[in-house]
Design a protein around this nucleic acid. Sequence first.
DNA 1: GCTAGGCGACA
DNA 2: AATTGTCGCCTAGCC
Length: 462
Amino acid sequence: MIPISDLIGKGKKQITIDNVDVARVGEYAAEDADFTWRFYETLRPQLDESSLVPLFVETEMRLVPVLAQMERNGVALDVPLLVEMGKDLERQRVEVTAQIYAEAGRSFNIDSTKQLAEVLFDEQGLRVVRKTKTGRSTDADSLGTLAAETDHALPQLVLHYRELSKLKSTYVDTLPRMVCAKTGRVHANYNMIGAVTGRLASNDPNLQNIPIRTALGRQIRKAFVAGRPDHVLLTADYSQVELRLLAHYCQDAALVSAFERDEDIHRFVAAQVFGVDAAEVTAEQRSRAKAVNFGIIYGQSAFGLSRTTGMSVPEAQNFIDMYFRRYPGIRLFIDECIEEAKQTGFATTILGRRRPVPELQSRNRQQRMLGERLAVNTVLQGSAADLIKKAMIDVHDRIMEDPAGPRMLIQVHDELVFEVHEDSAAQEAEKIREQMCRALPLNVPLAVDTSWGRNWLEGKSH
DNA sequence: GCTAGGCGACA
DNA sequence: AATTGTCGCCTAGCC
């Protein structure tokens, strides 16, 4: 077998522990006592007696060769497409730059927040929306506020400039440079350690933050393609995995049965909280329920909810009160997470992964509130990480039996991307869905959406 | 060349 | 004060 370092070039960082190439070692990790010991030492802070087998032996150790294979696989890029996009972005960027200079009455470095602040606030006399540690904020939120409340063209132009600039420098210009000469693909690094919740992290390049939110950014996903003839990219992503875990932990009968019927969970929650039929839920009601559903996962306050939804603070507080009245199990779960973290000092995931939460012991109220959010969020985010890791191992063990079968290429926290022959995409999607749904037994069913197509964007849902 | 800060991409 | 977790680009200041 070709060592990874030969494949993807010198100087490339890989999964390392004490500078040992874990990805390569991982091929025989299970038989390598020295490696196993050092890996154990590295993960020991996350483990206790009860999680040693399910988490360390059965999950983390077995994931090492899976990630090694993913790194070796890499993913193909449509470089000519990226080059064309780069030219187009540059044309637009030059145009917007000229407009910004015209509005400002002079040229300056738009990438410099310091210079930009001078132009906006000193020279153009715009309002300072928010301060940063060292100066006046020019972030998207502040510029959006200014764009909405003034006639000045600059804030909107700078927002546009930033979007073009971000896409070009971080993705369109950078990704082609990372294509390996030998394989014609990019071989990202997956880091098993370092994310406190147990999630994976990815770098060189980071494949876990490829744009999807905006129409322009989404185009970048077209450049991620199947690299072999007659193959497609197949994506399989967990639907609402953290909310399902919340329902699993709470055992709330209504939530669980809604998931069992695979209902639109935000609509369902809106109907329950507002006391109307699901069919009568308005777009705004659903949107508010969705915001609270996610807010719960992060421990959001009424203030935070009011900011993300546009509700007033009392309105947001009222909604949260109604929410907890309808779902007392969720309130109970939150309180239990906090209490356990206070008692034991740790937040603990479904497979027994532990994260210390020293913030709960702080004399600083702000720190203690942070600790409470961490205690809840870590259980949900970390359990979701445990779950997909188990799924990756199961799928890997099956697909490796067939050299012509699917190859696992990318993991993005609740999503897996495979390269698969187009003729078997439909059958493989079902097998992968099945294995992902069964990865861990929960009190709620798991749902996995699949799609496939020539590139990472074009997939059709199935 | 290194580090911190600001910003913004994703789940 | 006010929602969690990552990585990377760019500027600015310092060695």
